[in-house]
């Protein structure tokens, strides 16, 4: 068969068209990965490029200074964030783990279904709405912004994450382990706390760290609860500073120096949040091959 006859053969032409479509498809899917990862590189790259110079030990420990005064840092905000996230974790951690144990233990049950659904729905509630809720519950009665209200907002956001992740890892604990405990005559609660939870601990730890690093980056629910403060304020009944709030307030300010500090604070926050995320993920990955 010579070349021209091949050109005219409809079967061969159709085959070529299909092969071309398949190659275009492959190229497009590869290109799409590039397009999707470009913003990640761009965001992280800008944060490092614009923030790195200003991150000094002094920046990390000193508190906010008025515009025009040299120096000034985010020490107050780091302390405030630690206070808010730490206390939110202290509230949401036990509640979330208990709820996760409940969900893992009761598979087919109307209440479990409703709790599972509500945790999923709660994950989808916009964080700003949770801020409005915390405002109504704690700011209105106390008559001023406070760290307590910020803690409540963050805890509400963390609870469903911890509960669902705990449920998942507890499910993966082999049934034989708890059966062995029960066969020795241990009570259910003892088996749960002494056998199941320790066996699932890397996973539960991953859930806690993941939820905490997520909460550390939250800004919207803190704007009218913890509110922010230029001082090193660690009284939970007073307004408390937080790193994301500093980034926002400095970024939208008209002062060049504050904007520079916003980038530096963004770098610090990025490192903290991404490190938390990676630690959490490596804990999960360590469990996976079994």
């Amino acid at each position: 068969m010579n070349g021209r006859a091949e050109e005219r053969d409809p079967a061969i032409r159709r085959f070529r068209r299909r092969r071309l479509a398949d190659r275009v498809f492959l190229v497009l899917t590869v290109a799409s990965v590039g397009v999707v990862l470009a913003p990640l590189v761009a965001v992280v790259g800008s944060v490092v490029a614009r923030g790195a110079a200003a991150v000094t030990p002094e920046f990390l420990v000193s508190v906010s200074r008025p515009v025009g005064e040299p120096g000034g840092g985010i020490g107050h905000a780091l302390a405030g964030s630690a206070l808010l996230v730490g206390s939110a974790l202290a509230v949401a951690g036990p509640f979330g783990i208990a709820a996760g144990l409940f969900l893992a233990g009761t598979r087919r049950n109307r209440i479990a279904w409703a709790v599972r659904a509500s945790a999923d729905v709660l994950t989808g509630v916009p964080s700003i709405v949770v801020g409005v809720f915390a405002y109504a519950v704690l700011v209105v009665p106390l008559r001023h912004f406070s760290g307590l209200a910020g803690t409540l907002a963050l805890a509400v956001l963390m609870w469903p994450l911890i509960a669902r992740a705990t449920e998942e890892v507890v499910r993966m604990v082999p049934r034989e382990l708890s059966e062995a405990g029960l066969a020795l005559g241990a009570r259910n609660w003892r088996v749960a706390l002494r056998v199941v939870v320790p066996a699932a601990f890397p996973g539960i730890g991953a859930a806690l760290i993941g939820a905490a690093s997520r909460a550390a980056g939250e800004t919207a629910p803190l704007m009218f609860t913890a509110f922010g403060s230029p001082f090193l304020a660690l009284d939970p009944t007073e307004p408390v500073a937080a790193v994301p709030l500093v980034i926002f307030n400095y970024a939208v300010s008209p002062y060049d120096d504050w904007r520079r500090q916003a980038w530096a604070a963004a770098l610090v926050l990025c490192v903290l949040v991404l490190a938390g995320n990676l630690v959490s993920r490596s804990l999960i990955a360590r469990r996976a091959p079994r």
Partner: peptide, 30 residues
Amino acid sequence: SDTAFQGVLVFAGVGGLALLGGIAWVVGTM
């Protein structure tokens, strides 16, 4: 003791359910 433990777990779970309802109710009344 087992019943009490199970009660705590159910409370934590149902507490989350109540939280969702609470948010809706608070935002609604406001």
